[in-house]
């Protein structure tokens, strides 16, 4: 069976690429420390020596649209092009190209359907910064095949938070049951408190530092029960109007498991939103 060698949950900040590559007077004052933190985080994936990456993210109205909106979608393609014109325009992100791990996509779809998740699929998926940002931060050489999984945290009606946790648990079960000798890392990205297109956007910190503090505590201690007791689709409006992206962190808590303390935790308080980085080694360490 395949081995789950690392579970990683991260924010996906589209400004990292530009900040980290800027030089001279274009380089923002927070860039050096940000790069240092990201490189330390990257090492937690490198050490796990993965062969395949399952990438959980959310399309930002690029390919998935309101005339045909899936709640959970698995990419099943041999290749994926990535990043979109408006991400080049706003964030300076480069065009990217990925190889797919198509047999694992097929396995997750078949077994996920049989496990009670009516997963949508795509045979031609252009992926966006929710998946390319963690490749840029965690695996910039982009040399590993991926399985992209998209969640709808964006276009209500949304699935309930507990459903994200359940899907995370199921993804873990499926990866660990996949008949393969590959070493698999599951990487998912979301947000802490975040406001986009509202009055609290682009402030000196994230819109709700108290929510961020609690969120980091829930994630780093694996407190799924405590998190589910407080977080609802309604409550997520309060910390910022884009905070439903936190449900992708909840999905990753489901992958990591109830009570699973993160082996690596780091945060970085930036303008606009707080960065947060978590790694779990499910088998108690890196072999």
């Amino acid at each position: 069976m395949a081995e789950l060698v690392a579970v990683i949950a991260s924010t996906h900040h589209p400004f990292y690429y530009r900040a980290s590559t800027a030089t001279g007077e274009d380089r923002p004052p927070f860039a050096d420390e940000w790069v240092r933190k990201v490189e330390a985080f990257r090492e937690t994936l490198t050490k796990a020596r993965p062969d395949v990456l399952v990438m959980v993210g959310s399309d930002h109205f690029h390919q998935l649209w309101l005339d045909n909106m899936p709640q959970f979608l698995v990419g099943k393609a041999p290749f994926y092009d990535a990043n979109w014109y408006n991400e080049e325009r706003e964030f300076g992100l480069p065009r990217m190209f990925f190889t797919g791990q198509e047999d694992l996509s097929a396995y997750i779809l078949r077994e996920g359907l049989d496990a009670g998740f009516d997963l949508a699929f795509s045979n031609e998926l252009r992926i966006d910064h929710s998946i390319t940002c963690p490749i840029i931060t965690l695996r910039p050489q982009n040399d590993l095949p991926i399985v992209p999984i998209y969640t709808n945290i964006f276009a209500p009606p949304l699935p309930q938070p507990k459903r994200f946790v359940q899907l995370g648990r199921t993804i873990r079960e499926l990866v660990e049951a996949w008949p393969s000798d590959k070493r698999v890392a599951v990487i998912g990205t979301g947000h802490l408190s975040l406001e986009l297109g509202g009055p609290r956007q682009f402030g000196p910190h994230g819109p709700d530092p108290e929510f961020d503090r609690k969120a980091v505590e829930w994630i780093s201690t694996g407190d799924i029960e405590g998190c589910l007791a407080e977080v609802t689709l309604e409550s997520l409006h309060l910390p910022g109007n884009a905070t439903h992206g936190f449900m992708d962190f909840m999905l990753m808590m489901g992958v990591a498991g109830e009570g699973a303390k993160a082996d690596y935790v780091d945060t970085y308080d930036l303008f606009h939103t707080m960065e947060a980085y978590f790694t779990w080694y499910p088998n108690g360490g890196v072999a």
Partner: peptide, 24 residues
């Protein structure tokens, strides 16, 4: 840089929770 984003927030400063429903 970021001037338009902060102006955008300022022009929405009168808005309070709950925000308008965006469900389609």
């Amino acid at each position: 840089p970021l001037g338009f984003q902060t102006e955008y927030a300022r022009r929405l400063a009168h808005v309070s929770l709950p925000y308008p429903d965006i469900t389609t």
